[in-house]
Computed example of a mutant assay.
Amino acid sequence: MKRVLLLLADGFETFEASVFIDVIGWNLLDGDHSTELFTGGLRKEIRSSFNQRFIVDYPIGEIDVDSFDALAIPGGFEEYDFYKDAYDEKFLDLIRTFKAKDKIVASICVAALPVGKSGILKDKKGTTYKNPVRRDALKSFGVEVMNQPIVIDDYIITSWNPSTAVDVALLLLELLTSKTNADYIRSIMGFEK
């Protein structure tokens, strides 16, 4: 079984989190049945953007990186304190540990910023939300910022806004399983290209 950890920061965007939950879940039920998703965060209770409350499976101190195959991180809103959690050293260190163990790291929108701040994107290509402030922030972490919707470099996926979310989740599924399987899930979910 391939296990994905969905890492949530306060202020995370629910839509961006939900695509990982659904794509990995659809694969568990209707695809090759090889994936499961679990949630983690700095605390047991995390608030999303717009103040919904979520209880995660694992507080960060209880996460065994060796038991996961990939890390997925949704972006979020500064107005809901996304960067307070996302730039916390424990959050960044977890990202570093996943990469050090050659695991896939997938991010959507501004989740590229903690990935960049962690150092794992230094001297690599990436993208983030199409806002000059966010793009400059990513560049300041030593990332070659690309003007394209999705960038993958060394099994690190970054993207530029919520419109890319489904494609990022399906790309993660493809890397965990196969292109044929991910295309099948795309089709049965109605996201055919």
Rank of each mutant, 00 (worst) to 15 (best):
F12T: 00
E13M: 09
E13G: 09
F15H: 04
F15P: 00
E16L: 06
E16W: 11
F20K: 02
I21V: 04
G25S: 09
E36P: 01
L37A: 11
T39F: 09
T39I: 11
T39H: 10
G40E: 06
L42C: 09
R43N: 15
R43W: 05
K44F: 12
E45W: 04
S48L: 08
S48E: 10
F50Y: 15
F50I: 05
Q52R: 07
F54Y: 15
I55A: 03
V56F: 04
D57V: 14
P59C: 11
P59T: 10
I60Y: 05
I60F: 12
V65W: 10
V65Q: 06
D66S: 03
D66F: 04
S67A: 13
S67M: 13
S67P: 07
A70L: 08
P74R: 01
P74A: 01
G75H: 08
G76C: 07
E79L: 08
Y80P: 01
Y80C: 04
Y80F: 09
D81E: 04
F82T: 01
Y83G: 02
Y83H: 07
K84H: 06
K84Y: 08
A86Y: 10
F91Y: 01
D93E: 15
L94E: 00
F98E: 02
F98G: 07
K99E: 02
A100L: 12
A100N: 12
K101I: 07
V105A: 00
A106G: 00
A106N: 05
S107F: 11
I108P: 12
V110P: 10
A111N: 11
A111G: 09
A111F: 14
A111W: 13
V115K: 01
G119A: 05
I120W: 01
L121Q: 09
K122P: 03
D123N: 15
D123M: 09
K124Y: 06
K125E: 04
G126W: 13
T127A: 04
Y129R: 15
K130Q: 14
